[in-house]
Amino acid sequence: MSDAKAEILGRIRSSLSDHPQPAEPIRNYRKVSDKSQAEVLEMLIDRLVDYKANVFEETEETIAQRIAEQLGKSSRYVVPTGLKNEWLPEDTAARTRMVDSGNDQKSGALSLRELDAVDAVVTSSTVSCAETGTIFLTSQEDEGRRAITLVPDHHICVVPLDTVVELIPESMRRVDFNKPVTMISGPSATSDIELIRVEGVHGPRTLDVIILK
């Protein structure tokens, strides 16, 4: 044990010589939703729009067309290895899909410079909290490593309907914190200048959310 560690732990024990015995925390806050799925979905959309995200509701049949539209005619975009191919539009002369392997120490991963040069990224997501308008990315195969959803300026994120919950505690039950987790509530924003909210500083300036029914 380092000297500093031993000394700090010693100081803590000495400071607690009155042996405080606080009660076990009371957790009376809401842990389970009492709302219908339709109400919860409406709430999520309301929050996301409030954050200036673009929200679309699509089905397995229409999602590829929607993604094609959001990418625009000319686009080089990146996707993680596990993303469903059926969701994605066919490549064209002007629209190219690049698959990132998910491990920047192995081959098949885009370099930071390459990521900086792509136009967009498309991923799925693990769970979304309606009450706060928060989408959780948890390093799953269809979400990829953190850099791919950070460096490109445009993030198209798919939210499957059965991953929408109302409350933060409900969201947390679906997340494994052993891997890196990124919670996204709208596009990058700042209020540092005269408290005027500006969407888009360093993270993706455009966030498209596709609710998949």
């Binding site: 957790r27 806050y29 929050r47 954050y51 998910g102 491990n103 920047d104 120490q105 192995k106 991963a109 909290c129 009450e131 706060t132 308008g133 928060t134 390093s139 490593r145 953190r146 850099a147 933060i168 947390m172 914190f177 052993n178 891997k179 890196p180 987790v181 990124t182 919670m183 996204i184 509530s185 709208g186 596009p187 990058s188 924003a189 209020s191 993270g203």
Partner: peptide
Amino acid sequence: VFLQLLPRSSTGERMNPYTSTWTGVTPGDG
């Protein structure tokens, strides 16, 4: 609990745009 208390008390938003967590080293990421 704190993920609900902090953003609302701080910026007055329901949630801040980005929250990151990391649990030690993840090979190939970060």
